[in-house]
Amino acid sequence: MTNTALSLPQIRKLIQRQNVFDQFVVLALLAAALSSVIVTAGILYILISESVSFFSQVPLGEFFNLVDPKWTPLFDDKNFAIITLISSTLVTTGVSVAIGIPMGTIIAIYLSEFATEQVREWVKPILELLAGVPSVVFGYFALQTVTPFMQRIVLGVQMFFAPGRDEFDYYQLPGFNMLSAGIVMGISIIPLISSISEDAMRAVPKQMREGSFAVGATRLQTSFNVVLPAAISGIIASYILGISRSLGQTMIVAVAAGTQPIYTWNPLDGAATISTFIVEVAKGDIEHGSLEYNTIFVAGLALVAMTLAMNLLGHYLSKRVREVY
């Protein structure tokens, strides 16, 4: 008969071996987690070091010039007022948020609170399909479909309120404009917002809804008074992700909003956003290490700062309004 029980030293050895293995696994996990930190730190390092060399040649006052902002780093008469690019980035993002957040939220409420299982099974894959459309396709959709449509609408509105003039005497919406780009960008973030918000709302316990029905609330009242506040932190997270994506969106604005760096807050104008400028410059031939080259990075740093500010705000908001249930 063999003794199957292990002796104390054997057990100790076994545990030791197990401990070594455990530590190895923990290290591997840590390395995986650190890789994202390292990549982020690396990106920030490059952005900041190139920006430092930019600011050694361009005064800060010029960069933050708000009085007569111009962004012409590739011309002989160089101007570097970043607000030129920030304004158009904020305008296109603003338009996209004005479309994407209400639509995404409404879709999420409908899918989570009202839609039958069959409707949900139909709508969700279509929404996911929308999320999978490449951004360059969205860009040409904005330029070729939405812009002509918006041009007719802008004309129609003018003809309605001030009739009687010749068609070409009216204001014509330019072929490149931030409105169309923003609208399509808004459509492109709908699936992101609706799916995250819907998940957050469906995670609200059934008992909470029943409590609301039991006091005589309708489905609609329950959705807005009980489910929405209970899921608010997830919903805000989806908004933040949507806004961050719009801020960094490149192809749609590059194709549909034009590439002229014009300082304007009017969505009917065409203007280059930060990301448009970066692709425009990066695809041309500029000397490595030149001032023009440095502008790419300083613009990139501005974009990262905006996205970071957005994420911090979102983190703060969702923490402040978080509900524990």
């Binding site: 008992q207 909470m208 029943e210 409590g211 609301s212 029905f213 309708t218 008074n225 506040p229 509900e323």
Partner: peptide, 19 residues
């Protein structure tokens, strides 16, 4: 809805609204 207004309900697990 009329029934809900005339007949109140208290549940097994307390379910106050997140308000």
């Amino acid at each position: 809805i009329t029934v809900h207004r005339r007949v109140g309900m208290v549940f097994q697990r307390p379910n106050p609204f997140p308000k």
